[in-house]
Simulated scan of single mutants.
Amino acid sequence: MAESTIWWLLAGSVIAVELLTGTFYLLMLSLGLVGGAIAAHLGATVPVQLVVAAVLGGGLVVAWRSYKKHQPPALPAGANRDVNLDVGETLQVDAWNEDGTSTAKYRGAAWNVSLRPGAVSAPGLHRIVEVVGSRLVVEKL
């Protein structure tokens, strides 16, 4: 069996494991194995193929880790617009209770509403910043 065939089989196996586990880092390592296969196709010796696979795979893992480290953390589901489409919508609050809660009409139903910590309790138009159970957490626009 040709050396490049072994590299391609290894790359395919790592991709299969990545599909089962969902670990993106394995995809980066499989790209390193593809680099080893291409080096084998170009006629490189086995030590050079190993170095290419290790440097490429390891470099991609380090690059991906660095990229992920500099991304902002994901919002919790209740405050994430991608998960809950109510986040970012507006509603009218006519009056606030002394404890910072109210009831407001939203989407044709009465909802319990509370203020985001530190927000001002004034009647008017408010934006939904989070949904906690059946309670809307809002802030004044």
Rank of each mutant, 00 (worst) to 15 (best):
M1L: 07
E3F: 02
I6N: 01
W7Q: 02
L10Y: 04
S13T: 09
E18C: 07
L19Q: 11
L20I: 10
T21C: 04
T21N: 04
T23P: 01
F24S: 12
F24G: 07
L26F: 04
L26T: 02
G32Q: 03
L33M: 06
V34Q: 03
G35N: 03
A37W: 01
A37G: 11
I38R: 00
I38M: 09
A39V: 00
A39D: 09
A39I: 06
L42V: 02
P47C: 11
V48K: 01
V51D: 14
V51Q: 07
V52D: 15
V52T: 09
A54G: 06
V55P: 05
G57I: 00
G58I: 03
G59I: 05
G59K: 01
L60F: 07
A63M: 07
A63L: 14
A63T: 14
Y67A: 05
Y67C: 00
P72K: 15
P72Q: 13
P73V: 14
A74L: 14
L75N: 05
A77P: 14
A79G: 09
R81L: 13
R81W: 12
R81D: 15
D82H: 13
V83F: 03
N84E: 12
V87G: 02
G88Q: 07
E89S: 09
E89Y: 10
L91K: 00
D94A: 10
N97V: 12
G100C: 11
T103Y: 03
K105S: 14
K105E: 15
A109L: 03
A109H: 08
A110V: 12
N112Q: 04
L115Y: 04
R116G: 11
P117N: 12
A119M: 08
V120P: 02
S121V: 15
I128P: 02
V129Y: 07
V129F: 10
V129P: 15
E130W: 01
V131P: 10
V131T: 01
V132T: 06
L136I: 06
L136Q: 03
L136K: 05
V137D: 00
E139K: 10
K140M: 07
